[in-house]
């Protein structure tokens, strides 16, 4: 439980909590970006360099910009604010989330590890991850490439305006 962990955890939680509670949708995405930066720093602190940098590139770079674009494209002309649902749905949603957290925390505190925790910092340099991706995990890598291509084409097809549509 080091100071750096507490600090980064505070940043991640602050960003996530703000992303779920702010009124304006653009502010929500910006707060989410802050939370993702905190998470990426946590990955780096845990020794997973490649994952931390990927997290920065994908979430802070791509997904945040994509979400802002979607918000800009779907902003209603009347200028209505992004409201929460009715009071009852807010309370029941928050209660459900609280219940889930309580169960998870109970499991974390009462669970016992079958193996002793390793204390040494494992080595996972970008080089080792690259070698593993090209040897042991080459088939999943190819499949994810195909998946991403299909998703790209599919997203483009979905977002293309229908010609002659009646809206």
């Amino acid at each position: 439980m080091t100071l750096s962990f507490l600090l980064l955890a505070a940043i991640a939680i602050l960003g996530a909590a703000a992303a779920m509670n702010l009124k304006s949708a653009v502010h929500c995405v910006l707060a989410l970006t802050l939370g993702m930066v905190g998470l990426a720093a946590l990955y780096l602190q845990l020794g997973a360099q490649f994952v931390g940098l990927t997290q920065l590139l994908v979430y802070v770079g791509a997904v945040a910009i994509l979400a802002v674009f979607a918000i800009m494209l779907t902003r209603s002309r009347t200028g209505e604010t992004v409201a929460h649902g009715s009071a009852s749905s807010r309370i029941s949603g928050a209660l459900t989330a609280l219940l889930v957290f309580a169960v998870l925390a109970w499991a974390i505190f009462t669970g016992v590890s079958p193996q002793p925790l390793s204390g040494a910092q494992p080595e996972a340099s970008v080089r080792e991850v690259g070698v593993a991706l090209m040897q042991r995990f080459v088939l999943p890598l190819e499949i994810i490439g195909v998946l991403l291509t299909a998703a790209l084409v599919g997203a483009g097809v979905l977002a293309i305006e229908e010609k002659g549509g009646d809206r």
């Binding site: 955890a9 949708a25 979400a67 918000i71 409201a83 929460h84 649902g85 928050a94 925790l117």
Partner: peptide, 30 residues
């Protein structure tokens, strides 16, 4: 508390925050 449970607790908190947002927000993007 071991360092592992710290991370697990943080992860549980982030999960619950995301769940509460997904359940209560009415904007599809959020």
């Amino acid at each position: 508390m071991s360092p592992l449970s710290g991370y697990l607790l943080l992860s549980a908190l982030l999960f619950s925050l995301g769940l509460s947002g997904a359940l209560t927000r009415r904007n599809a993007i959020l």
